[in-house]
């Protein structure tokens, strides 16, 4: 079932990724994303009713972690952060949380 991606949809997806796009970019991505979707739509031509979904190529199930503790020094973590505030990582104010 082919469904064309509209400009509104491109803008919506951009919003979810908190991206600001120009009108030109919206047009460009609408074209490119539709091309990608056309490719993906080919899957719809296949009969997959008898197939299970595959979530991973590995054949191992029930793989669990070992119990060795692993904590990274917070100094290393904080030194990798653009802005810190005491031991906290500081980001711009997020309203409506």
């Amino acid at each position: 079932m082919k469904k064309e991606l509209t400009e509104e949809y491109v803008m919506h997806v951009a919003h979810l990724g908190r991206l600001k796009l120009t009108d030109e970019e919206i047009k460009k991505y609408k074209y490119q994303l539709n091309q990608i979707l056309d490719e993906i739509n080919k899957i719809n031509d296949l009969d997959i009713t008898s197939k299970d979904i595959m979530i991973t190529p590995t054949i191992n199930n029930n793989m669990f972690s070992t119990k060795e503790l692993n904590t990274t020094d917070s100094k290393d973590i904080l030194s990798n952060t653009p802005k810190t505030n005491g031991n906290y990582i500081e980001v711009r104010w997020l309203k409506n949380d």
Partner: peptide, 25 residues
């Protein structure tokens, strides 16, 4: 005792950002 996908500790009330590792971040 540990977190769900990493081997750092599941705690409450500790100094901020001391019970973490690269996976949690």
């Amino acid at each position: 005792k540990e977190k769900i996908f990493s081997n750092s500790l599941n705690t409450y009330g500790e100094v901020a950002n001391t019970k973490i590792n690269e996976i949690d971040l």
